[in-house]
Nucleic acid binder design. Structure first.
Length: 153
DNA sequence: GCCAACGTTGGC
DNA sequence: GCCAACGTTGGC
C-alpha cells in the first residue's frame, strides 16, 4: 500500500479535527493544483498518510490518517457557491478529485520541519525542498520508516 | 506582515 | 508558444 503526506493548516483542518471523530471521516477536497490532484487520484483505500501542519505555530508532522475512500470527483467544483467552484469543470469531465480520510493516530510528539530537514533520508521529499509548495506528495517506504524511527525527545 | 518561489492566466 | 502580470503558498 502506498504512503503519502498531505499539508494542512490546523486552523482549517488539523489532527485535532480528525481525532474528534475517530470513526468518522473528513473529505479531502478543495485541492486545486494539478500535480497534487494527480497524486490524490492515485490514493487507494487503506493508504496511510502523514498529516503535516503548515502556516501555524508548531510546523511539522502531527499525525497519521488513512484513506477510507479513494478518489472521486470533488463535489465543490460543481458548486457555484463554493470558493472551490470551477466553472470549467463538468460532471462528464470533472477536473478535480477528492478522497476521504480517517484518523489513525497522533504522533507521540510533533516532528518539526527543522528535524525533517535534518534527515538525509528525506532529501528528495518535496516537503523539505526549497520553494516547493506541493500539498500532496508520495512518501517512499524508506522515507516513512525514517520519519517514524525518529526518537521522541 | 514580509517576501521568495512558484503556478496560472491571458494578451500577443 | 512566449512571457509579463498576477495570485497563492508558506516559512520566517
Amino acid at each position: 500500500m502506498a504512503k503519502w503526506l498531505i499539508k494542512s493548516e490546523p486552523s482549517e483542518c488539523g489532527i485535532d479535527d480528525f481525532a474528534r471523530d475517530p470513526d468518522g471521516f473528513i473529505p479531502w477536497d478543495g485541492v486545486r493544483n494539478y500535480q497534487a490532484r494527480n497524486f490524490l487520484a492515485q490514493m487507494a483505500e487503506g493508504d496511510e498518510v502523514f498529516l503535516y501542519h503548515s502556516s501555524c505555530k508548531h510546523i511539522g508532522i502531527a499525525g497519521i490518517v488513512r484513506v477510507v475512500r479513494g478518489a472521486y470527483p470533488d463535489p465543490l467544483q460543481f458548486d457555484p457557491e463554493s470558493h472551490y467552484h470551477d466553472p470549467k469543470s463538468t460532471r462528464d469531465k470533472p477536473r478535480w478529485q477528492a478522497v476521504d480520510m480517517q484518523f489513525v493516530s497522533r504522533l507521540p510528539r510533533l516532528i518539526s520541519l527543522d528535524r525533517l530537514k535534518s534527515l538525509p533520508a528525506l532529501a528528495e521529499l518535496p516537503l523539505v525542498r526549497r520553494g516547493s509548495r506541493l500539498s500532496v506528495m508520495p512518501v517512499s517506504e524508506a522515507e516513512w520508516q525514517a520519519i517514524l524511527a525518529l526518537p521522541n525527545g
